[in-house]
Amino acid sequence: MKKQRYIFGAAGLLCLLLAWQIGTFFLGQSLPIAKSLAPVETFESLWYLISSHEIDHHVLASLKRVAIGLGAALVIGVPLGLLLGFSQKVEMFCTPPFQLLRMVSPLSWMPIVVMLLGIGDLPIYFLLVFAAVWSLIISTSAGVKSIDSQWILLGRSMAASRGELFRKIIFPAIGSHILTGLRVSMGIVWVVLVPCEMLGVNEGLGYFILDTRDRLAYSELMAAVVLIGAIGWSLDSLIRCALGKLGR
């Protein structure tokens, strides 16, 4: 089954590559710029960017922002999720405002955040945390509600302290839920990151895309798009592997 998954996955990627080549070929007949976006030109530029280390600091800057944004979202989202999961009154109080805020696109806050926080990393961190925190709150709360109350009663009957209950029963029980929320948050953050990095910073993959556009380096622009997809896929795979190991 695992071998079959790899075969079908590779076939899907080949079909995508073929569609990309056909699309740029036909577009190139009437739009010469499309030829710069073809797979051969793109992968040549991607190899140059990687081998020359020209894009390294942009990748590291983006990964640093993602790590800080997700870390802050975990610090905020997991405790709030625990609170909502254990207290029905807190859940009833918080659900309406949380649902209202959750439905607002993080990108719609960009003009307001720039006006209040200026340009630089701070508004980017705010937008990433805002994008990531809701999935973590919801998944943590759902994990708490899925815990069998008998386990909590058993722990209390054995005179377990509150800290021991969290360490021995609650966190092991909700670990997979938190990782699932983290996986969803990672996908959202990685998508939101690129437009956020167009907010006046001078490094990052979003900035690099703007820079290639201004330099008319369209094959490098497309190479950056491919690299963004590959890195995002890799990050998602890491969390998926952690989920698989936790579920064993």
Rank of each mutant, 00 (worst) to 15 (best):
residue 119 I to W: 13
residue 126 F to M: 03
residue 83 L to R: 04
residue 146 S to M: 10
residue 18 L to H: 03
residue 145 K to C: 06
residue 126 F to W: 09
residue 63 L to C: 13
residue 216 L to C: 13
residue 160 A to E: 08
residue 226 V to T: 00
residue 86 F to R: 15
residue 62 S to W: 04
residue 6 Y to C: 01
residue 53 H to N: 14
residue 92 M to T: 12
residue 222 M to A: 13
residue 126 F to H: 05
residue 123 P to W: 00
residue 120 G to T: 04
residue 145 K to L: 10
residue 12 G to C: 05
residue 154 L to F: 15
residue 149 S to L: 13
residue 19 A to W: 08
residue 225 V to D: 07
residue 203 E to I: 02
residue 34 A to V: 02
residue 145 K to E: 11
residue 220 E to D: 10
residue 26 F to N: 04
residue 139 S to E: 15
residue 198 M to A: 06
residue 125 Y to A: 00
residue 86 F to C: 14
residue 125 Y to I: 00
residue 61 A to F: 07
residue 53 H to F: 10
residue 64 K to S: 14
residue 223 A to T: 08
residue 147 I to F: 04
residue 121 D to G: 05
residue 145 K to N: 11
residue 76 I to M: 12
residue 165 L to V: 06
residue 145 K to P: 06
residue 111 P to S: 04
residue 35 K to W: 02
residue 29 Q to E: 14
residue 60 L to D: 10
residue 11 A to C: 09
residue 242 A to H: 03
residue 125 Y to G: 00
residue 25 F to A: 15
residue 121 D to K: 02
residue 235 L to W: 02
residue 219 S to D: 10
residue 92 M to D: 15
residue 171 F to D: 12
residue 186 M to K: 03
residue 74 L to D: 10
residue 63 L to N: 14
residue 117 L to E: 01
residue 208 F to I: 04
residue 30 S to I: 05
residue 243 L to E: 11
residue 248 R to P: 01
residue 28 G to V: 10
residue 220 E to W: 04
residue 90 V to T: 14
residue 100 L to D: 04
residue 155 G to I: 07
residue 46 L to D: 12
residue 163 G to Q: 05
residue 191 V to C: 04
residue 104 V to Y: 07
residue 174 I to N: 06
residue 114 V to M: 15
residue 232 G to C: 03
residue 104 V to S: 06
residue 183 R to I: 07
residue 85 G to F: 02
residue 42 T to R: 04
residue 180 T to N: 15
residue 118 G to P: 12
residue 14 L to W: 03
residue 161 S to E: 10
residue 56 D to N: 14
residue 136 L to T: 01
residue 122 L to T: 14
residue 199 L to S: 09
residue 242 A to P: 02
residue 170 I to C: 11
residue 20 W to I: 02
residue 215 R to S: 13
residue 69 G to N: 00
residue 25 F to S: 14
residue 138 I to N: 14
residue 185 S to A: 11
residue 212 T to Q: 15
residue 177 H to G: 11
residue 228 I to K: 03
residue 202 N to M: 11
residue 80 L to T: 10
residue 107 L to I: 01
residue 58 H to D: 15
residue 137 I to C: 07
residue 45 S to A: 15
residue 241 C to M: 14
residue 4 Q to N: 08
residue 78 V to P: 11
residue 25 F to P: 06
residue 211 D to E: 15
residue 147 I to A: 09
residue 186 M to G: 13
residue 186 M to H: 07
residue 71 G to F: 02
residue 170 I to N: 10
residue 77 G to H: 04
residue 88 Q to E: 09
residue 132 A to W: 02
residue 52 S to N: 10
residue 96 P to Q: 01
residue 192 V to N: 02
residue 28 G to N: 07
residue 107 L to C: 00
residue 180 T to K: 13
residue 242 A to R: 04
residue 70 L to Q: 06
residue 240 R to N: 09
residue 150 Q to F: 13
residue 29 Q to M: 14
residue 1 M to F: 07
residue 148 D to R: 08
residue 200 G to I: 06
residue 9 G to E: 00
residue 14 L to N: 03
residue 146 S to P: 03
residue 158 M to P: 05
residue 221 L to R: 02
residue 67 A to E: 07
residue 160 A to Y: 14
residue 214 D to I: 08
residue 159 A to W: 07
residue 14 L to R: 01
residue 27 L to D: 11
residue 156 R to N: 07
residue 63 L to M: 12
residue 49 L to G: 11
residue 205 L to D: 09
residue 163 G to L: 07
residue 39 P to D: 00
residue 190 W to E: 08
